[in-house]
């Protein structure tokens, strides 16, 4: 029996590719320090998709930029970040840069601005491979065509020398994905990759990444505020609010038994075809400013529950509520 369990374990728990532990990011601004991310921890294993969910300004993107050494200069980053067998936070900039380029691929939000307008796309797709894998210019060109074909760009051999403005938004995002895959990364970070695209294109891009992940076994971190995408592709999900993770766990658990009032409000705010014609559900109020975070739970000012008086002044602890499912709350048992 125990042997069976351990074998099962070995089958499901692949190697951890990337882990973030107690990551905190403080950004110096003209109006004082802004705490963009506070004590965030998560990890993602090979072949697994981890989704980071939250509204704009909740610290999702900053978490990833800071973890990979791309945070703005004004940001102070503390905590521990591991990529494969290296502790990124302990490395000098130059080593971190090389590891990032070699093992991490990035897909950013807006394909209209994330490509250099004056360089041919093929060159942009493979310059990381030239840098980190030592590909020659000729080999790189062949590789660029191969990658563009992989992401479904028609007549890639001709398009390889075209410039970004000669592609549509969806095609550009495919180019960006090809670029992210150039060094066959162990980790793919997709920072709201579908937000700037129209709906039909969104679905294509989501499918493309899911398909590539299956074929290449890459770990994927998907930042989004689209809960539909999360339900469709993620294995685990973390919900961020005010720079903290408020709920984290396997995607089924979080969607079936959302426990934190914010998670519940977020799920309730999804448009529902069954309630056509009714007003859309919204969360009243606005997210807190990172310059002026409430002392207790960041969601308290907008919280419709407020079941515990401590929430206002005291930070609720991350409390386990199910297997791998944790919630930042004082009242885990009172899920309705």
């Amino acid at each position: 029996m125990s042997e069976q369990i351990s074998r099962l374990d070995a089958g499901t728990s692949e190697k951890t590719v990337f882990s973030v532990e107690d990551l905190t990011v403080t950004v110096g601004t003209r109006r004082g320090p802004a705490r963009a991310v506070a004590g965030v921890s998560w990890q993602v294993r090979a072949g697994e998709t981890f989704a980071l969910v939250g509204e704009s300004g909740s610290g999702k993107s900053m978490t990833l930029l800071a973890a990979t050494g791309l945070a703005p200069r004004a940001a102070t980053v503390t905590g521990r970040v591991r990529l494969l067998d290296s502790e990124l936070t302990a490395l000098p900039d130059d080593r971190r840069r090389k590891l990032r380029g070699r093992h991490v691929g990035f897909v950013f939000q807006d394909p209209m601005t994330s490509l250099n307008p004056v360089l041919p796309v093929g060159r942009q797709v493979t310059e990381a491979a030239e840098e980190h894998l030592g590909l020659t210019r000729r080999a790189a060109r062949d590789r660029a065509v191969e990658l563009l074909e992989l992401v479904g760009i028609p007549s890639a051999a001709q398009r390889v020398d075209a410039f970004p403005h000669q592609f549509s938004g969806g095609m550009r995002q495919r180019v960006v994905i090809a670029m992210a895959l150039a060094c066959e990364p162990d980790l793919l970070i997709a920072d709201e990759p579908t937000t700037a695209l129209d709906v039909t294109t969104q679905a294509q891009i989501v499918e493309l990444v899911a398909d590539l992940q299956q074929r290449l076994g890459t770990a994927v971190v998907w930042v989004t505020h689209d809960l539909g995408v999360v339900a469709g592709i993620a294995d685990t999900v973390a919900v961020m609010y005010g720079g903290r993770i408020v709920e984290q766990g396997p995607v089924d658990a979080v969607f079936d038994t959302p426990t934190h009032p914010y998670t519940r409000a977020l799920l309730a705010a999804r448009p529902d075809p069954a309630r056509r014609g009714e007003d859309l559900v919204a969360i009243p109020g606005a997210p807190p400013s990172p310059l002026d975070l409430p002392p207790g739970c960041a969601f308290w000012p907008r919280c419709p529950v407020r079941a515990d008086p401590r929430c206002e002044h005291e930070l609720p602890p991350l409390t386990p509520v199910g297997p791998g499912h944790t919630v930042r709350t004082f009242y885990p048992g009172e899920t309705s």
Binding site: L70, K98, G101, R102, F108, S114, E127, E131, M179
Partner: peptide, 17 residues
């Protein structure tokens, strides 16, 4: 501050490049 410069940095290119 352009996005494509962040993209280039994300690729781990040397600063000079």
């Amino acid at each position: 501050s352009a996005d494509y410069v962040r993209t280039a940095e994300a690729k781990g290119l040397r600063n000079r490049v």
